[in-house]
Design a protein around this nucleic acid. Structure first.
Lengths: 251, 251
DNA sequence: CGATATCTTGAGGAATCTCAATACTAGTGG
DNA sequence: CCACTAGTATTGAGATTCCTCAAGATATCG
């Protein structure tokens, strides 16, 4: 599964315009701050977070975390898309989730990550040394609560995915995924637009417990039935949200 | 499914002998304290936890939490076994997990539980009002960290289960479950003994994304191959741990 | 514009599910 | 203590969904 990706600390991610008002504090001007764990801090505290923040940008295909790596960092996605996966010894892959702007990753039970994270599209990520972040947590309990809330949220999502993987049909799985991506896009402020699907059919299959072919066939069916459109450019338009909602739960 | 179970606040769960040394503090004498979230508190702080603890005991089959209930409590299992599940509108059921002594349950993202919890065997549970527990968390950050660690742990387990549900064969699923139950029994101090399986084949199926029949057939195969024994009384003995380990990952 | 990866579609096969019958187990009452 | 009953488990046979293998179409990127 390839080695570590090129982790180039980014120089300056922010356009001059947005830096003007808070020249010494990039975090304060971060466009995804309200989505990220950073939302737990007051503007005047963001400088502290920025001090421990190691910005990295990686290319599509590069690895941010390899399963088994010592879990020294926590991450927050600024821009881009990544996939999180686990492997079986024989190479079978389960994608645990996809990461978009604002998403958080890096929790580990033991000292090592139990999953890998790779970029699907060029991505910029805020990387926080665990030790430093924990020190910050001591000072700002609100941030600890935010982190806890994120973990609980992830857990609820994981449980939904168990229901999907354990009990849903291929059609229900694809419909569920499209709706969930649409919901997440809305949270990021993208309303009612077409959904971006930067991942391949194979990625989708490995996420939904299906094969590439079954995913493709299912898309074709949903398109023929008029529930979705699939314009070029890795996009999907939900034509009939209600019918798709029914399709997602076997209705 | 059914309604809410009989939640009878238990009077006194502990034998007189173990109460003698700390007569005013049942928590201090709790046999599963080291397994529970209570382990985060010093002995002299346990009294505070005990004050907000509402002990409940429920019969096999009774419901502790119904999906959609307002999430007013967090729970810690003292004794017994429970199952956690989610339902699709048409009644398909996915079991998210089983709870044994020391296990924790009750996290909720919104104001409502997103899952149901039912007793498989008669169970005794420590119930903590969320509000009260949060107040305690303010005073004892260590307990907050413990809770966070539990949530992270749950998340890692959920991700393993996604891999199982998305990619593993029936044989691998059953083998994985047996090994994981054995590991959990060890954590509770039950070493190398036969594994108790208080749940039905149907429960196991709904946990592993299989049908009763497939679970039964798989058990039969593993028994015929000499990897396990299935003495009467809902027990399983692992005869060949190594082979079972291989079977769990397709080796 | 060509090369390569990705996607789609088809045909056949395999694992698991469904339906159905029988055997077992545990708890109940005689 | 045994027989009875209801739930549970096992086994079989056939159906079905999804997978595998393969070929062709489309998209993407240098």
């Amino acid at each position: 599964m390839g080695g570590r990706g090129d982790l180039n600390p980014a120089k300056t991610l922010l356009p001059a315009a947005s830096r003007r008002s808070v020249p010494e504090n990039p975090c304060a001007a971060c466009p995804v701050r309200s989505l990220a764990i950073c939302a737990a801090l007051e503007p005047e505290q963001l400088g502290l977070l920025d001090e421990i923040n190691q910005r990295v940008s990686i290319d599509a295909g590069a690895t941010l975390i390899a399963e088994g790596d010592p879990a020294h960092h926590l991450f927050n996605v600024s821009t881009g898309t990544l996939r999180v996966h686990k492997l079986l010894p024989d190479g079978r892959r389960q994608i645990i989730g996809f990461l978009f702007a604002g998403d958080f990753v890096g929790l580990a039970v033991k000292q090592e990550y139990a999953y890998s994270v790779e970029a699907i599209a060029p991505s910029e990520i805020c990387r926080f040394p665990r030790k430093d972040l924990e020190a910050l947590l001591e000072r700002f309990p609100k941030m600890g609560r935010e982190l806890f809330a994120r973990a609980s949220d992830e857990l609820a999502i994981a449980q939904d995915q168990m229901l999907l993987l354990g009990k849903k049909t291929a059609r229900e799985r694809v419909a569920s995924m499209l709706l969930s991506l649409a919901r997440r896009a809305e949270l990021r402020g993208v309303k009612n637009g077409p959904i971006e699907l930067p991942m391949t059919r194979n990625d989708i299959g490995d996420y939904l417990g299906l094969t590439t072919e079954t995913v493709s066939r299912t898309f074709t069916k949903l398109r023929n039935e008029g529930l979705i459109e699939t314009p070029p450019g890795h996009l999907v338009v939900i034509r009939d949200p209600e019918a798709l909602g029914d399709a997602a739960e076997g209705g």
